[in-house]
């Protein structure tokens, strides 16, 4: 067992946690304004791919991050337009965007790199790793906490910032109001539509970063559909964390740990099929503890009288 739960397992949990956490925070902010964003998976995939493209085109990490954010922003704008402006069914739009993301990345992989399946170039630079002074010298803890990509640390800061924003600022308060009772918020002159757009775009930025961590942080390559359901796991993390940044972080931590455990177990003479299943099984088990709103409430919301 000692070999199983060693330093590198926890260190890798932190790496695995980051993409899920970032996307889940994006999902949380969307949920807070009343939009259930099923498109996290697609947004993340776009982020992962465009980060690689940015890297290939510019060779600069900063620029490739910016490029990834730009692409996911454009994509989330599409989501916002369809679901807020055109009032299309959010879930259908989310599913459609996932399809589009998969189609676009596969096509572009072919069109830009002329490869199928995966793109890898040993000249590509991954996200820089940060060694934190003092902490890196602490035994065990240093190994776990130090030496990760910037985005790992950034994601922790983002959790705190988002928590502060939502529960301590005027603007965050209004965002919560817009989600809780849009009609009332609108009657008070709160620009609900603008807030919803803002939330979806912020979600885009976060998913862009999540994707970048996936393709430039954890590895330095892109494979077709490399998000592998992480967007949906992030959605569950959003739900489990009740769209509260700290709660979402907790839920993501669980899923990140399970993912790194699943990778680790492969070294233990277990069929990979079962180890690969672990994150999904755990996610489903975790859902046991989260009661969905239930169809009654859902129906009340959508069929409620206009009186």
């Amino acid at each position: 067992m000692d070999q199983l739960f060693d330093v590198s397992l926890f260190a890798s949990a932190l790496r695995m946690l980051t993409p899920i956490l970032l996307a889940a925070l994006g999902g949380a902010i969307c949920a807070r304004v009343g939009l259930f964003n099923v498109g996290l998976e697609g947004l993340m995939l776009i982020g992962a791919f465009s980060a690689i493209v940015g890297n290939y085109l510019t060779g600069s990490i900063a620029l490739s991050l910016l490029f990834a954010i730009g692409c996911t922003l454009a994509f989330s704008l599409l989501f916002a337009f369809m679901s807020i402006q055109l009032q299309a069914n959010v879930i259908v739009v989310g599913i459609a965007l996932n399809f589009l993301a998969l189609g676009l990345t596969t096509f572009s992989l072919r069109a830009i790199f002329d490869v199928k399946g995966a793109y890898y170039d040993k000249n590509m630079v991954g996200l820089p790793k940060l060694n934190i002074p003092v902490i890196e010298d602490i035994p065990w803890l240093g190994g776990v906490l130090s030496g990760h990509s910037v985005l790992v640390y950034a994601s922790i800061l983002i959790v705190a910032a988002l928590h502060y924003y939502l529960f301590r600022t005027v603007s965050g308060f209004r965002l919560l109001a817009a989600g809780e009772n849009p009609t009332a918020a609108r009657s008070l002159g709160i620009k609900v539509t603008r807030i919803q757009y803002g939330a979806v775009l912020l979600c885009g930025v976060l998913c862009g970063l999540a994707g970048a961590q996936l393709s430039l942080g954890n590895v330095t390559m892109f494979t077709e559909g490399m998000t592998a359901g992480r967007g949906f796991i992030a959605l569950v993390a959003t739900m489990l964390g009740q769209s509260n940044p700290l709660g979402v972080a907790g839920a993501s931590l669980l899923f990140g740990f399970m993912e790194s455990l699943s990778i680790r177990l492969q070294g233990f003479a277990m069929p990979t099929h079962f180890t690969l299943m672990v994150p999904y099984v755990v996610t489903i088990l975790a859902m046991l503890f989260f009661k969905d709103k239930g169809y009654m409430q859902e129906a009340r919301k959508s069929s409620g009288s206009s009186r």
């Binding site: 600022t169 965050g172 308060f173 209004r174 109001a177 009772n181 009332a184 918020a185």
Partner: peptide, 24 residues
Amino acid sequence: MLFPSFTVAENIVIGREPSRAIGF
């Protein structure tokens, strides 16, 4: 036109919240 999960005070000041810098 109220927000049930907000406090009485929050419901009253919403739209013209007293603030310190960006903080509510």
